[in-house]
């Protein structure tokens, strides 16, 4: 695809456990967790790609590997024509001005000993974007106003703000260097419903104002369904389905996506009966299942699913999914009742 701002090809991230001396002497292999395995996706300029999955599926790791906050083990990330994975440390530092991240936890992501002026001003200082302290303070103050805080709060410490306000500080820090691309790592998950809506609104407004592109990571289908243009569904380190948000939400093709959608409690009164109950828990990523990684919980699983991993196949305009039984047109609700 051309015109993509960000291209991810075959990205993997494996965490290798530390080996004890004894273990090494005995020739044991270190434990390895493949948090992200062979992920490919494109993000068009100006779009919001929603990345959805349950905890431990590797979605946050993927976001960090793209930014090289966690060094990828394999694969390539191309940002605006530059191979980011091949950049020298110095060039990567410079590139960080254009690729930013907003964190989930508004408490852990702000240094408690530094003032808002320090925290939000840091990118300016590091990238030489402000001439002098006074200019830097002024830019920070402007940014604070843009995210809905008061310029007069510039010398306060993080503990003097509420959770929602702290998240605004984190957003100001991410956007002050005028990036093109922002990874939003569950930016509203830790917030109360009414505050969550404020931050979603703010992120939308800022996207328009600064012409941003988002990778929006969330476990909340409602948020993704409301915000994103396209969505990618992740399960145990792999993308199992991706496509335009309307298509994926209205006609989910992968049984995991189907179960995820049916599990969300909706405010609109719906009949409870059409809900599918996934049995069992997420398998340990230390010891992932063979074949299709979803087969241990999938009501549609057949023999082949246990043996070989399915490939992603196109099922519609820009819509693909990885499932052996894709073309049988099954839905997990029928399969569930048949089983």
């Amino acid at each position: 695809m051309t015109g993509a701002l960000l291209q991810v090809e075959g990205l993997s991230k494996t965490y290798v456990g530390r080996m004890s001396l004894v273990g090494r002497l005995l020739g044991r292999r270190p434990t390895a967790v493949r948090a992200v395995s062979d992920v490919s996706l494109d993000i068009e300029r100006g779009e919001i790609l929603g990345l959805i999955g349950e905890s431990g599926c590797g979605k946050s790791t993927l976001g960090r590997a793209i930014l090289r906050l966690h060094e990828p083990s394999a694969g390539r990330v191309t940002f605006d024509g530059t191979d980011v994975t091949a950049l020298s440390p110095a060039a990567m530092t410079a590139m960080r001005r254009r690729m930013q991240i907003i964190f989930q936890d508004p408490y852990a992501s702000l240094n408690p000993r530094r003032t808002v002026a320090d925290i939000v001003g840091l990118p300016l200082q590091l990238h030489g974007l402000a001439s002098g302290r006074a200019a830097q303070r002024e830019t920070v103050a402007e940014m604070l106003e843009k995210v809905g805080l008061k310029a007069g709060q510039i010398d306060r410490y993080p503990h003097q703000f509420s959770g929602g306000q702290r998240q605004r500080i984190g957003i100001a820090r991410a956007l002050i260097s005028r990036p093109d691309f922002v990874v939003c790592d569950e930016p509203v998950s830790a917030l109360d419903v009414s505050i969550q809506a404020q931050i979603i609104q703010l992120l939308q407004d800022l996207k328009r104002e600064f012409a941003l592109t988002y990778l929006f990571i969330s476990h909340d289908i409602s948020v993704i369904g409301y915000l994103a243009d396209r969505v990618a569904v992740m399960y145990l380190g792999e993308i199992v389905e991706q496509g335009p948000v309307e298509a994926v939400l209205s006609r989910p093709r992968h049984p995991y996506t189907q179960s995820l959608l049916s599990a969300v409690p909706k405010v609109e009164a719906t009949a409870r009966t059409d809900r599918v109950r996934l049995t069992g828990d997420l398998p340990s990523p230390l010891n992932p299942p063979s074949g299709c990684k979803f087969h241990t919980r999938c009501p549609l699983a057949i023999d082949i699913c246990r043996r070989s991993a399915p490939h992603r196949e196109t099922v519609g305009q820009g819509h693909d999914a990885a499932c052996h039984r894709l073309h049988e047109g099954l839905s997990i609700t029928d399969g569930g009742s048949a089983a």
Binding site: S162, G164, Q165, A197, Q198, Q204, S222, G225, Y226
Partner: peptide
Amino acid sequence: RGLLASIPRPALRGQPIRPIEGQV
């Protein structure tokens, strides 16, 4: 009402959500 309007819903795509302003 504000709480219900704050919940992002796929059905409301493209429309601005109306969050409750301010804080508790």
